[in-house]
């Protein structure tokens, strides 16, 4: 079992291949790994409540153990604030991301 930090900077509207990254996160979790899925930049667009075909909803149904975090600055920059944040997504920041990255053996993957 390994620890993974998957950082998703892209969104499914501009990049059709983001689905692959969400699926990998789910597969890694289902295989018994600890997976943190960190949304940043336009990646946080999937963290807005009410989005159609929510990739975050699908991920959480497929792999409930994946921890989904979203960068607070990226959220605020896009006015995804207050009650607009989708359930199951926790607001986070780069300080917490660095804490996750600065651990030997953690597999950090940017997309």
């Amino acid at each position: 079992m390994a620890d993974y930090v998957l950082i998703e900077s892209r969104d499914p509207f501009e990049y059709s291949d983001t689905g692959y990254f969400y699926e990998v996160a789910a597969d890694l979790s289902k295989a018994g790994n600890n997976v943190t899925f960190f949304l940043v930049q336009n990646g946080v667009l999937t963290a807005r409540k009410g989005i159609s075909n929510s990739a975050v909803d699908k991920l959480q149904k497929a792999a409930p153990n994946v921890k989904v975090l979203a960068d607070e600055f990226s959220l605020r920059e896009r006015a995804i604030i207050g009650g607009k944040l989708a359930s199951g997504v926790a607001s986070s920041d780069v300080d917490e991301l660095v804490d996750l990255l600065a651990v030997s053996g953690v597999k950090a993957i940017w997309h």
Binding site: D11, F13, R76, E77, R78, A79, I81
Partner: peptide
């Protein structure tokens, strides 16, 4: 269009960088 529609959302705040 596309993601740029978010430019029209009120309350964007990129302060504090």
């Amino acid at each position: 269009r596309s993601n740029a529609v978010n430019y029209a959302v009120k309350g964007q705040d990129a302060s504090g960088l």
